[in-house]
Design a binder for these strands. Sequence first.
DNA 1: ATTGAGGCGTACCGTACGGTACGGTTCGGC
DNA 2: GCCGAACCGTACCGTACGGTACGCCTCAAT
Lengths: 210, 210
Amino acid sequence: MTPPPPLTVSDDTLTERQKDVLDAALGLLVDGGDGLTMTGVARRASCSKETLYKWFGDRDGLLTATVQWQASKVRVVPVDRDTLDKRTLGIALEKFGRDWLTVLTGDTSVALNRLAVSHAGQEKRNLGRIVLENGPIGMARRCKPLLEAGRDAGLVKFDDADQAFRTFFGLVVRDTQIRMLLGEQRRPSEEQIAAQARRAREQFFALFGA
Amino acid sequence: MTPPPPLTVSDDTLTERQKDVLDAALGLLVDGGDGLTMTGVARRASCSKETLYKWFGDRDGLLTATVQWQASKVRVVPVDRDTLDKRTLGIALEKFGRDWLTVLTGDTSVALNRLAVSHAGQEKRNLGRIVLENGPIGMARRCKPLLEAGRDAGLVKFDDADQAFRTFFGLVVRDTQIRMLLGEQRRPSEEQIAAQARRAREQFFALFGA
DNA sequence: ATTGAGGCGTACCGTACGGTACGGTTCGGC
DNA sequence: GCCGAACCGTACCGTACGGTACGCCTCAAT
């Protein structure tokens, strides 16, 4: 008798061994979207398929747990909003953009988003939902308070925080993500990412600066 | 003896029957990414699998032809650049954004991009390349001359046309496409699309207006 | 030492699907 | 009318993979 896999998976609901298994799945996912098969994961993680089914229910449960496991790795960096002036707000936004672009263009993120996108096309919408929640929506949730704090401090000016955030998103990401997802080989360098984050900050202030 | 399928597929290299078959594949693709199987296409198009293999070589050839067929449907609307003032440039850019968002959020585009994204994760990079070419890259190719004409007419000001285009892309698309790809149900209404295109135009002129 | 749970490795089953073969039908050319 | 090409429908094959069963090992608890 095995309890059904938990609905949410995070750092402390998994044993070390289970984390190893999910890391194996992630690795398998990163180098070549195919090959991510139950047998493949079992071989890579040196465990038995039966264990996989016992722990994660079925293939979909394994994939879901893998996505959640990766999502739980990305930690939120809270922003100190007490000493907020135009300079620190700009620095925070620019760092935000830099971190975001770095994650977005990483192998793991690309592979994970590819998986979620392809699964969103079938019935199983849950992977897409999870990645959505930890992607754009999560970014919005962390970014909007910062923007609103900036507005409250009279540093920037906008009516709708959501619209402002989405504009910032567009200025940062532009066509980078879709190009990566579609297989563009060229990955932006660290310098290009930094330059792009700086441009996004400047442009955001040009549009919304008070 | 059948000649290998042509490397490029367009409106005039296909018979009507073949177009019907590809449209059947498109339809199958739109309602549920799975189900797009050789048997399924044959059944939906009322043709035999043998014919599919004769015409398109293998499954990958069929998919490639399908993507190219859809791409060939999207026609370019050339812009008259003789009578270019700030108003007409703005109108052209806004229409550009509106059309682009309308296509992006359409069922067919979403399904096609999902297919291309998932295939870009495996060896077969060609689908991604085709969609890339007809997506962001194609948009850039059509948009950049317009921007440069605007610059030559002293209406807008920028150093790098590519950077300017990508900014415009970001202002128009923002997180709309990735959200659709990840399965977000809510599709923007025609009014929202129009409003967004208008905002993108205003913001672009605010950033780059001479 | 015994025992039982947890887990590894492997063999196995059923199914779905890519790809092939073949008989039957339609149709244009002679 | 006759022939061959093209094509439809279907049956078939091989393989890959999701999922299950089972034998064996390890190890902790008693």
